[in-house]
Write a protein that binds this DNA or RNA. Structure first.
Lengths: 111, 111
DNA sequence: CCGCATCCACAATGATACTG
DNA sequence: CAGTATCATTGTGGATGCGG
């Protein structure tokens, strides 16, 4: 029996893909942010905040910064008056969306 | 434009599927538990614990109880001496596994 | 062997007010 | 408008020991 036949001898360790995903988009808000931005070419800060029920400035700003650092979103600042900032999903994030939609469907069907 | 054309007017509220999923299998361990149990007809407590790197008794026991309450796993206790307890995935949980594997693949490819 | 109970540390999240 | 700063609160996770 080859190693590939075993799904996971152990999970959650160093190189575990699931663990990496959880570290990147785990937590209460990041997945919701991705869902909120799906289908929009670009969204402004306030627009995202209004879309996500219950999120606070603290959490939104912090999540956006981390997701930018992880290469999931792009931040574009326009130095107008007043300032305008737009966020867009990167290709990496876009490739994740279909999976999140499946999760959503599963949740609606089973929960 | 029909409402269905909009992915989510708002997300994270009452009936939001994604929010439900996060409430059910969010957190640090539950997704890993599901991955660990995938492919096994039944697993004993200690076996699960050894499979998941870093998990403690507290978190494993608590997670298993909650997942049983949510209908994701079945708990079968054999009153032998010493006690033997086996856990198995329900059909509901099994239907979630493919999505988790996609997440895992995404993580390995992109992170 | 299984896993619950207790107690505790710290991280995550939240409310509020304030700035460029 | 788009955040930051600060402080309060909650939640998550861990160590340890006990009991069936």
């Amino acid at each position: 029996m080859k190693k590939k036949d075993i799904i996971c001898e152990t999970v959650g360790g160093e190189g575990c893909g699931v663990r990496k995903v959880l570290n990147t988009i785990g937590g209460k808000w990041k997945i919701l942010i991705l869902c909120a931005m799906h289908g929009h070419a670009a969204m402004r800060y306030g627009e995202i905040r209004r879309t996500i029920v219950g999120i606070t400035n603290t959490m939104l700003a912090q999540s956006l910064r981390e997701m930018e650092a992880d290469g999931l979103i792009l931040r574009q600042q326009y130095d107008e008056m007043p300032v305008r900032v737009e966020y867009a999903l990167t290709e990496k994030a876009t490739s994740l969306i279909p999976i999140l939609l499946e999760l959503k469907d599963w949740g609606e069907k089973h929960l």
